Amino acid sequence: MVVMIKVIVAGFKGRMGKTTVQMVNENQDFELAAVYDPRATESNLNEINEYQALDVPVYSELQQIKSAGLDVWVDFTSPASVFANVKFALEQRISPVIGTTGLTDEQVGELQRLAKEKKVGGLIAPNFGISAVLLMQFAQQAAKYLPDVEIIEMHHNNKLDAPSGTALNTAKMIAKVRKEKVQGNPDEKETLPGARGADYQGMKIHSVRLPGYVAHEQVLFGGLGEALTIRQDSFDRISFMSGVAVAISKIKNYDELFVGLEHIL
């Protein structure tokens, strides 16, 4: 007898949350056991027209959640609430799979310590797209030889945080193989503040927010007489679901909190 993985989706009213609910419901190895969103007014998913065939409890407060039997907490909520959500999940020994960005390094460290204490596996993924994971790995490799780099990330105009978690993680991965350096003219002056973008250890990160976009990133490298551009595009949120499904399937096999999907692929 196959034991299904019981999943709670946090942020089910958002676009990524809705896509995740659909994926979990259609996966024969998963059971959609509950959903959570502070904006919810329903008590059951079947009160919503598109989910009339589903008998799934809806929660709008963390304290309401009946955690017994839940295996994996998938979180696509907001930067303001993700830390409390993940801490709650770990304390209840529910393995978190986190797609929400905005956690600080200090918060990640605290959550990783809690995961080790509770011996609970978890994942914080700046991006669940396989192409995005490959972009970050390729960029890290290229930075060993082309240390002058700038990052441009492009997302839909409703995204709350900037830069994106993927862009920031790309910069962190590059920083591991690249010495911090000042790029461009050391005497340059911004005639319009912010024109050169955000700075991470000498690398510039630029954020674009426009309707019609989903999630896109370019990493630009420059050298003497040459240039390299690595680009990744996610045209539909369904592109993230293969990574989410892999994380749900594997995360209970671990007893620590990872940052980056590549750690469990």
Rank of each mutant, 00 (worst) to 15 (best):
204 K>V: 10
223 G>D: 05
138 F>S: 14
171 A>N: 00
230 I>F: 01
22 Q>P: 07
71 D>E: 05
173 M>D: 09
32 L>R: 08
21 V>P: 05
150 E>R: 15
152 I>L: 13
11 G>C: 06
141 Q>W: 08
207 S>V: 01
39 R>A: 15
182 V>S: 15
170 T>R: 02
238 I>R: 15
186 P>Y: 06
30 F>S: 03
139 A>S: 10
195 A>G: 08
230 I>G: 02
188 E>W: 09
124 I>R: 04
31 E>C: 13
28 Q>F: 09
111 L>I: 02
103 L>W: 00
115 A>H: 04
204 K>D: 10
149 V>T: 12
192 L>N: 04
127 N>D: 00
141 Q>T: 12
221 F>G: 01
261 L>G: 00
93 R>D: 07
161 D>A: 13
69 G>P: 10
225 G>I: 08
215 A>F: 07
109 G>P: 09
81 S>L: 11
65 I>C: 07
175 A>C: 11
243 G>T: 07
221 F>S: 01
101 T>I: 11
36 Y>H: 09
5 I>Y: 06
63 Q>K: 13
78 S>P: 05
77 T>I: 05
139 A>Y: 00
230 I>C: 04
252 K>S: 04
79 P>A: 06
188 E>A: 13
117 E>D: 15
75 D>G: 09
58 V>K: 02
20 T>G: 08
20 T>A: 13
232 Q>H: 09
27 N>H: 12
248 I>V: 09
219 V>P: 00
240 F>S: 10
262 E>M: 05
30 F>P: 02
254 Y>R: 08
259 V>Q: 07
203 M>W: 04
118 K>T: 09
65 I>W: 05
185 N>M: 14
50 E>L: 05
104 T>Y: 06
82 V>H: 03
202 G>S: 09
195 A>E: 13
94 I>R: 01
70 L>K: 08
15 R>Y: 03
117 E>V: 09
187 D>W: 11
98 I>K: 04
52 Q>P: 07
132 A>W: 00
129 G>R: 07
135 L>I: 01
264 I>Q: 04
179 K>C: 13
201 Q>D: 12
158 N>I: 06
98 I>C: 14
75 D>R: 02
145 Y>K: 15
239 S>A: 15
196 R>G: 14
105 D>A: 15
108 V>C: 11
196 R>T: 14
244 V>L: 03
109 G>E: 12
70 L>Y: 01
167 A>G: 01
111 L>P: 06
80 A>V: 11
54 L>N: 05
34 A>V: 05
47 E>F: 01
54 L>K: 07
193 P>G: 04
143 A>E: 00
128 F>A: 01
109 G>K: 12
14 G>K: 00
